[in-house]
């Protein structure tokens, strides 16, 4: 039985002047998924997310959140409570303290005491800002501001979280922290739609990805199926002995589709089409053949390689 759709759009289109920023998109994100939106700058990711957050009015098309029609008016306050939106520029009130800022939004989202204070403590702990609760927002670092914005986004426990380039401009440690938080939120059952240029982050976080280009959603699939379809398995081997002997031995294996010597190292990268059992068999045969192997490392092509392989060449 198919899972319920947390986000669904029909023919969603947004035109700015004569340029179509988002073109007739039918997006389907299942409940509980972390959906990564990738694509070059100007592909329409931000516009799509803004429309899903009701921050932008679609020119045409319909949006459904958990099966309910989303309109940009006051007719659905309950639906608005289900959405959390973090834009890429995350504006804040510099004159407020961290606690007062969260308190303001908790009240806007109709959280009542004692739940309000409890929830504020929870999110501050989650984004690791408990020690800064009495600090003025103006004194926070960029990473902290980003985390505070995320705390604001999730204060009302939304079911759908829309994150637009949430890690851009963050240092590696802040990015790791951010990733960990997203994982916790996913475990808590939130559906997350996240756009990012950092594909390694998305690879680690996402269950599905969509590729946007020139306003079109050109690819939308689960990460597993994408890898199955487009990612070739590779094995990196290194030897203490003769490279030629290793290469001739590898040529005997029917699953080896090609190989390349990694320049400057006694290593060979093999494109392998077999299963895990086949790769175990290859290792056994090489050892029987007396090849002095020091490394046998099966890997897969990463998301970045797949993205480049898809050949979407829109200029940024």
């Amino acid at each position: 039985m198919p899972k319920e759709l947390a986000i669904s759009t029909r023919g969603l289109t947004k035109q700015f002047d004569r340029q179509i920023a988002v073109h007739d998109i039918d997006l389907h994100v299942e409940a509980g998924e972390v959906y990564g939106l990738i694509g070059p700058n100007g592909a329409g990711k931000t516009t799509l997310i803004r429309m899903l957050a009701t921050s932008e009015e679609p020119t045409l098309g319909e949006i459904y959140i958990n099966g309910e029609r989303l309109l940009r008016d006051q007719s659905n306050p309950s639906l608005k409570r289900q959405i959390g939106y973090l834009p890429d520029d995350y504006p804040l009130y510099d004159d407020l303290t961290v606690w007062d800022y969260l308190d303001y939004f908790a009240r806007l989202y109709q959280l009542r005491e004692p739940r309000r204070s409890q929830r504020m403590r929870e999110v501050l702990e989650l984004v690791q800002l408990s020690h800064k609760r009495h600090s003025q927002i103006a004194t926070l670092s960029r990473g902290m501001k980003q985390r505070l914005s995320l705390a604001r986004t999730i204060i009302h426990e939304p079911l759908v979280l829309l994150l637009d380039e949430p890690v851009s401009g963050l240092d590696p440690i802040a990015r790791v922290q951010f990733r960990e938080i997203i994982k916790v939120l996913q475990e808590a059952g939130m559906t997350v739609l996240i756009s990012s240029h950092v594909l390694s982050d998305l690879e680690e976080l996402c269950t599905s990805v969509g590729v946007m280009e020139l306003g079109y959603l050109v690819e939308s699939a689960s990460l597993d199926s994408l890898f199955r379809r487009l990612s070739r398995q590779q094995i990196v081997l290194s030897t203490l002995g003769d490279l030629e002997a290793l290469k001739s031995e590898l040529k005997n294996c029917p699953h080896v589709e090609g190989m390349e010597v990694l320049t400057g190292t006694p290593k060979v990268r093999v494109h392998f089409s077999g299963t895990s059992e086949d790769s175990a068999e290859l290792l056994r045969s090489l050892i029987y053949a007396g090849i002095p192997l020091t490394e046998f490392q099966p890997t897969q092509e990463n998301l970045e390689t797949i993205f480049l392989k898809l050949g979407h060449q829109q200029a940024s």
Binding site: A53, T54, S55, Q74, P77, S78, K80, R81, I83, Y85, P87, D89, P91, L92, Y93, F105, L108, Y109, Q110, R152
Partner: peptide, 15 residues
């Protein structure tokens, strides 16, 4: 100018 009004607009509060 700061863009903060948009967040308030997205909340379930009435205008």
């Amino acid at each position: 100018r700061r863009g903060t009004l948009n967040f308030i607009r997205l909340s379930p509060q009435t205008s």
